[in-house]
Amino acid sequence: MNTMEPVELREQLSAMADGQLSSEAFAAVADQLGTHEDARASWHLYHLIGDVLRSGEIGSGQHDREFVARLRARLQAEPGMTRPAGSARNTPENIAHNDRTTLGVGSIDSYSMPAANDGVYRWKILAGLATVVAVAAVAWSGLGSERAGVQLAQPVAPTRVDVAQGGLGDGRDANVMIRDPHLDALLAAHRQFGGTSALQNPAGFLRSATFDASASRSMRIPGP
């Protein structure tokens, strides 16, 4: 890594503090920050200047360095979290974890907790899966065809398990549930003319008037 000229470095630091550096330049300056004591001093100074300019109050940033040093020491002293042995194999986190640790098989490091930002990959999987859920639900509503719906619903199999465990207590094999405005309208019509009729007064009426909330709207479970 080339060492930058002090003037150039300060300019870059200033740009970085303003959030103007792109990835490559950002990485280069971050490198410098890690190795140069005076670069860090400048970094704090620029932030201090920015804070004072923005707030108009006397800023104080002199303890930052000591604070960071203490925090780092404490973090290093923290015992690493151990991963529970025998965890399920096929979870995305295990796949991600195994990919990472093939470089150092058997090393003690492979059993210590990965760094905080290591989860990014898993969260991407998660976000992707969540998107699949959303897309599948939307596509299902849009297509109106059972066959297509069933195929689209496949990627969300893990969610189905959760719904089945937590949703219907009657042990029925729960499918993906989707909102159905048409059914909502019919339920309202049913309440208008039916409801538990003999108990309609008042409990039945109160029940339907209270139970209209969206939290309790109808959920359709497409049949086999």
Binding site: H182, G194, A198
Partner: peptide, 30 residues
Amino acid sequence: GLASVSLFVEPFDPQRHRGEGVAMMGATQS
């Protein structure tokens, strides 16, 4: 006398009528 059942019948419309199935909302089944 206590419970009621509504039968709704309408001409089939693929635009509005989605897949067949069942639904449960509290004690109300569909």
